[in-house]
Every structure is written in structure tokens, then in C-alpha cells.
Design a protein around this nucleic acid. Structure first.
Lengths: 253, 253
DNA sequence: TTTCATAGTGTATTAAGTACACAATTGTAA
DNA sequence: TTACAATTGTGTACTTAATACACTATGAAA
């Protein structure tokens, strides 16, 4: 245990040596017209895009901070959010570091510090989102996953890492409630899985497997009006879905 | 983009509203005599124990910070470390908050702040560790996983969360190189798995499965001298082991 | 030399994953 | 109106992994 004098010295040292800011970066996935989308921001002066992000308020839970940040960008208030990892490379700094670093002396400039970022990914319904730029940006928009622009700092690494985490999640948790409309066809759901995984799946085996999870309800009436054979419509059984979210799919050992 | 005036205001606000300290907490797992152990610290004045932890230096990678902290506690320099999640409840604060909070005015006391903690878990060889107390504690010792003491703050939540992460890891990565001696018997390895999972496994099925991973070499000579039938000795095939670490075991989808 | 605890090995059954083919529906073009 | 193309729905054989379970072998101690 420290004496008072030691505590004073420790506190002084800590204030000098442990000066790290925490930020939050969010990878928001949406799904539209068979394409996986990511919500990105851009200033007009810079070519590079960046992820929606922000900071944690003094008395705020970090998960709430992520929710708050995404509310501001998307207008949504119920968001599926998953913390997936922390990015703590000392070379990384907040996106506007370059931009603002010359404008003020280092001590006065918040952005001259070093930032450790907590990565979250979110799954949202594309149609529910109204993208709002933040105070640093002029543009907030969806970008296709297979046509991603050049990005600030390590944001490419972050969104790729989020995608990896999402793919891992597919193996032991249900996915889709937050990404699909209320009713959807089996081929549409399959397309979602194929997009996330980046590969084709067998129709018949996909159907058997996903139905085996017991998280889908098939409605009586098939979808009509479209070309070709009318497909059945499905929706998620929320009770079983929630249960599968907490329980997980396979036991493993 | 912000004007200079806006940047000044933003920086001032940020310095007031985003005052969060980052700490690192490590759950160090060891294995000895068929028991899973966790390395814990304790002061003499307090009954409660806490996890080894520390802070991130200004220009330090967070992973290196965790390595540095564990070097100081264990003497080890090559440690298997895995970041598993961030704990950001505003109620949590650094372990010595209660202890030191009255000793200095709030502004001068590092421990009066709010702490966001990055959780790491480590797997180490029990015999390689020489526990060193830190500057706040008088005691650093191994505790049995099934006889854990009362702990400071949310440290119980953290180590349980680490255990969950470790159990998940069993499903898609090899485990054991960092926890077992160089040579070991199949029943010993099985005991490790059983301890982590908290349940019994079938000997024959365990052996088939673990051998199927192709990460073990069986030595020519069985272990002699012990009671009962002499068991074979195994060691990890490091090339395949490393490969399995990065590749993972099952593809899932 | 018998007994007991532990180690090594194999086989049958069940469940899950994979590969693959044909029939049904609906709009469109001949 | 009819043939066609595109898409959907369904079933079955095959392979692989998971599970359940029983016998034989060894070595120390009684």
C-alpha cells in the first residue's frame, strides 16, 4: 500500500505517463439489394473515408456511448451492437489528427493525443437508417462491402476485423433479425449469409440447416406477383431467436 | 471540418467531458496438480483480492502493456496473451479507489478517476512463474479456480468472462502448449480440458479427437516408475500447433 | 498371485455435413 | 397457347464427425 507521499508521486507520474484517450469506432453493417453495406463518413477536403466514432462521456457506460454515437449517425435507437476488440497501436490516432494537428499547440489540441479505440460492430436494417454526417464531416453514406474506398488510419483494419468477428458469430449465433425486413424468403436470407461469408452456399443444405435451428416461422401465404415460382415468406421466431442468441448453436466440447 | 475557434472549443469540452483512464487487467491461468489456478494479488489491510493490472504508457501498444505488466508479476517474458473484452461500466474504478480516495483531493488523485479496463487472459506454465507482488500489494499468489476468494470491484466478473472466452477458444483453437510441461500423458491433457470445461470427458473420444487435430507427437518411451500401467508421453508438434492456432479447427459454414 | 487402479485400443450407432437431381410455378418470348 | 428460362421446393444417398460403450494390458500393493 502506498503512503500519502507515494500516492502524490504516483498520481503525478501517472498523469504524465498514462495519457491515452479512448475512442469508439463503429462498423455499421446494412444489407440492401443483395449487397452488404457499411456506413462511412467523409469530409469534403479529404479523399479518405472513416468509420463513425466518438468518445465516452465521463459517467457513461461504454456500450451506451456506442449506442449514443450510432443514434446520432443513423437515427436508430434500438441497435444490435457487439464489442469485438480494442485497437491500441500507438501509431494510430484519431481520424482528424492530421487535419487539426497544426492548428493548435499540442497541449491545447485534443486530437494531438494518442487514441485507443474500442471497436463495435452493428447490424441494422438498411431502410431504417437516415445517415447524418457528424460535426467533422460533410458526408455520411452507405458503401458496398465489395467496393470499399480508401480509409483513414487503421479503419480498414478495423472494418475487416469486424467482418471476421461477424463471420465467427455466424457459427454459433443466429444472424439476420437486425438485417432483414420482417418477412423475407429463404433465398434472400441465404443471400445475406453468402454475402457475409463471401461464398456461395448450397440452397438445399442451407435451408435444412437454418430450419434446423428452429428460429424461423413460415407464413401461410407465399409472396405473389414476382416473376417465377412464388416463394414462401419467413419471419424470425423471436422467442427462439433470442434464446439462440444467448445459448449459442453448437456445444463444441 | 472544424474552424480553429471550433477546435479550441471542442478540445476544451473534450478535456472536461471525456476524462477516462484506461487500465489493463489480466487473468493469468496456470495448471498444477489437476487444478486450474489464477494468479491474484492482495494487500494486507484488505480481505479482497484483485487481478494483476496496470496502465498503458503513452507510446506503448496495448498488447505490449499487458506483456510488460505480466512480466513484472510473473517473471515470464514469453506469454500467451489474448485480449478478450473491455469492461466499461462507469461504476467500476481502479481497485485502489476506495483505499486512496480520501487521501488526496480529487483533482490530484489519479485513482479518483473513472477507469475503463481492457481484459486479457494469459496461459502460463505454473512452474515457470515466480509471483511478485506489485507496489500496492503485499501478496501475489495462485488461487484455485474452484476456490476463488472474494474479489475487488468487478474482478470476479472479469475472470469469469475470461473463463468463458477460454472455453470458447477450446472449440476452434488448440490449447495446452502454454499450460502443460513439455511432455505429458494423454490423461493429463484430458484433465486440463476437463478442468477448463468443468466437466468429465470420455477418455477414448477425447483421445481420438485430440489426435485427429494432428498437433501431438508421441514419444517412443512411455513414462516409467509410476504406479499402474506406464502411459505414453506426448509433446506438441509446434509447427502444426502454430498452424492450428492461426487456422482454427472447424470451418463452420 | 490376486486384486485394483489406471492405460491402451476398437466398434457399433447416431447425428451432422455434403453432394447432387428432379419436379413445380410463373412470366416471357415465340 | 405453347415452349422456354428462371426460380423455388423438396428428397435421397454418401461421407464424415460425434457419441456410447467394453474389453485387454500393465504394474504396484495387498
Amino acid at each position: 500500500m502506498l503512503s500519502k507521499q507515494q500516492l502524490i508521486e504516483y498520481s503525478e507520474d501517472a498523469r504524465k505517463n498514462y495519457v491515452n484517450h479512448i475512442s469508439i469506432d463503429c462498423v455499421v453493417f446494412g444489407f440492401h439489394e443483395g449487397q452488404m453495406k457499411v456506413l462511412l463518413l467523409k469530409t469534403n477536403d479529404e479523399e479518405k473515408w472513416y468509420l463513425p466514432g466518438g468518445f465516452v462521456l465521463n459517467e457513461e457506460h461504454i456500450d451506451n456511448a456506442a449506442v449514443r454515437i450510432l443514434q446520432e449517425r443513423t437515427g436508430l435507437d434500438k441497435i444490435f451492437l457487439q464489442q469485438f476488440r480494442v485497437f491500441g497501436d500507438p501509431d494510430r490516432s484519431k481520424f482528424h489528427n492530421d487535419m487539426y494537428v497544426g492548428m493548435l499547440p499540442k497541449e491545447e489540441n485534443w486530437f494531438s493525443g494518442r487514441f485507443i479505440s474500442i471497436g463495435y460492430y452493428a447490424l441494422v436494417d438498411f431502410f431504417d437508417v437516415t445517415p447524418h454526417p457528424d460535426q467533422f464531416s460533410e458526408l455520411c453514406a452507405w458503401r458496398d462491402l465489395d467496393d470499399m474506398p480508401e480509409m483513414q488510419l487503421d479503419h480498414e483494419k478495423i472494418y475487416k476485423s469486424a467482418l471476421d468477428a461477424l463471420r465467427l458469430q455466424l457459427n454459433y449465433q443466429p444472424i439476420g433479425y437486425n438485417l432483414m425486413p420482417r418477412e423475407f424468403t429463404m433465398p434472400e436470407l441465404q443471400k445475406l449469409y453468402e454475402t457475409i461469408l463471401g461464398k456461395k452456399l448450397d440452397r438445399r443444405n442451407f435451408q435444412r440447416r437454418i430450419l434446423g435451428f428452429g428460429i424461423l416461422n413460415r407464413s401461410e401465404e407465399p409472396r405473389k406477383g414476382g416473376a417465377h415460382k412464388a416463394p414462401y415468406l419467413y419471419s424470425f421466431d423471436m422467442e427462439n431467436y433470442q434464446n439462440a442468441l444467448t445459448e449459442g448453436f453448437k456445444g463444441g466440447w
